[in-house]
């Protein structure tokens, strides 16, 4: 994880010319790279790839790798909000209540994000992941004291905060300007989700000191850190290998 701090190496970094225009990448460079990357992805679909531990889902490399990584996280979130709808916590919410309409919105938003990435990846998409929510109690709003299981809102908070940190940390691995902007369109909505869920748990905790640093910059997490958490919610055979994103 990078830290935005005032130190020697940062000064060196900022000694670079600021006046150099950074122009939009040529569409053709981009399109050509995408075609190449697609071929690479297809060739990388073999599960016995040397870089891929047996039984893990390799998200791949390059922009398709980052998109598959995002697709995996959106699958996880969408599956969570889908499963949530069968638990007694959700089914017990009054129709039209603020909490129910918020959870309905989150469900649709995450399904929409998931389907967008699946469409973008086409035949290069990783498989549909099998989730393991055995540590979540879908009948409890928040964790009961003494329970080892996460309540619905605790789990939602964990997933949304994780998603924002994941996008913040993955931006630098995206080479396509269009996909960087697309990721930006999604991450701020995830941050809005995270803020509301936190406020539902305890009003005023929308941006706690656990998610920002002393510069008021939100946390960013490397893919390896993110999947260490995400894999706890995925079944064997669906756990993610992100070691080729670099």
């Amino acid at each position: 994880m990078s830290n935005i701090q005032h130190n020697g190496s940062d000064e060196a970094e900022f000694a670079k010319p600021l006046y150099t225009p950074i122009k939009r990448r040529s569409f053709f460079m981009y399109a050509g790279a995408t075609a190449g990357a697609t071929a690479l992805l297809l060739s990388g679909c073999d599960d016995d790839d040397d870089n891929n531990p047996v039984g893990m889902v390799d998200v791949g490399s390059g922009d398709p790798g980052v998109l598959n990584y995002a697709y995996a996280l959106e699958q996880l979130e969408a599956a969570f909000y889908t499963t949530l709808r069968t638990g007694t916590y959700y089914t017990g919410l009054a129709a039209g209540s603020a909490e129910k309409s918020a959870l309905d919105d989150l469900y649709y938003h995450e399904v929409i994000h998931r389907e967008l990435f699946k469409t973008a990846l086409g035949s290069g998409a990783i498989k549909g992941l099998e989730v393991d929510f055995s540590n979540i109690d879908f009948n409890a709003r928040t964790s009961a004291s003494g329970s080892s299981k996460l309540g619905v809102l605790d789990a939602a908070k964990a997933f949304e905060d994780l998603g924002v940190a994941a996008y913040n940390g993955a931006g630098k691995y995206i080479t396509s300007a269009d996909y960087l902007t697309l990721a930006g369109k999604i991450v701020s909505v995830e941050a809005r989700h995270a803020a509301l869920i936190r406020d539902l748990i305890s009003n005023g905790t929308f941006v706690g000191s656990d998610v920002i640093d002393g510069n008021a910059l939100e946390r960013s997490k490397e893919p390896s850190e993110v999947v260490a958490t995400a894999n706890a919610f995925l079944k064997d055979g669906s756990k993610l290998n992100v070691s080729n994103i670099k």
Partner: peptide, 12 residues
């Protein structure tokens, strides 16, 4: 990016 998501939490 990290400023951006902080602002999104404020907005929410």
């Amino acid at each position: 990016l990290r400023t951006h998501s902080t602002e999104a939490r404020h907005a929410a």
